[in-house]
């Protein structure tokens, strides 16, 4: 389903990641951990097509998205969804419009049905008309998840999605999100610095140490 090969990343002059290889099957939930500055977020952003790298190839569902550290296909055409640490919900749009952003090509009725389905899944029915700043952090992050899932991406990337939330909320949400991802059977990669969170969330956990990836 997804294979990443020979990914090497250099920050300014220091090599942080060298010859990173990863392959995942459909529906896999993978977590990537490591200390800050270990290059785990950069690896994720390379897969998303947002940042370039020194070398590396990404093949998703048989399509070569990037090669030699350069992207062949722009982020908007990759069918990859992403959830960011600080939610990144568009502040000028209400929840409904935020979620609909990636599925504007559907008819109004289909959009509506999809949004209702997603809100039901994340347990936030009836918030369509609200604006992001009227929701709590945990609620916003669930909406961000719904928004990323709306276009049914082939791959979902989660970049420290739980780290700006309260401890008590975190654990609850980790499990809830895991359930949702399992239900939708979307291949996912979570980046987190919290090893416990990684083990609860993922089927497979990878750890970056000394520029190398080890998977246990």
């Amino acid at each position: 389903m997804l294979s990443v090969n020979h990914l090497s990343i250099v920050y300014q002059t220091t090599q942080v990641l060298s010859e990173f290889d990863l392959s995942l099957a459909t529906g896999d939930i993978f977590a990537l951990t490591g200390d800050s500055g270990s290059g785990k977020s950069s690896a994720l952003r390379f897969i998303a097509g947002l940042d370039e790298a020194q070398s590396g190839r990404v093949i998703l569902d048989g399509k070569q998205l990037s090669n030699n550290g350069v992207h062949n296909i722009a982020p908007e055409l990759r069918e990859i969804g992403m959830v960011f640490q600080d939610y990144a919900l568009f502040p000028h749009m209400n929840i409904k419009k935020n979620i609909a952003f990636g599925i504007h090509y559907l008819s109004n009725n289909k959009q509506k049905a999809r949004i209702e389905e997603l809100l039901l899944m994340i347990g936030l029915e009836g918030v369509e008309k609200k604006y992001p700043h009227q929701l709590s952090g945990g609620e916003q992050q669930r909406v961000a998840l719904a928004r990323a899932l709306a276009p049914s991406p082939k791959l979902l990337l989660l970049d420290e999605p739980f780290s700006s939330l309260d401890k008590s909320l975190q654990e609850q949400l980790v499990l809830q999100v895991r359930d949702i991802l399992k239900k939708t059977n979307v291949t996912s990669i979570l980046v987190t610095h919290d090893k416990r969170e990684a083990t609860i969330f993922a089927d497979k956990v990878g750890m970056i140490e000394n520029k190398q990836l080890t998977i246990n």
Partner: peptide, 14 residues
């Protein structure tokens, strides 16, 4: 913030 651009692009926006 750049993150808005990035998330919009990942949602397929031209």
């Amino acid at each position: 913030k750049p993150v808005f651009t990035q998330s919009a692009r990942l949602l397929g926006a031209s």
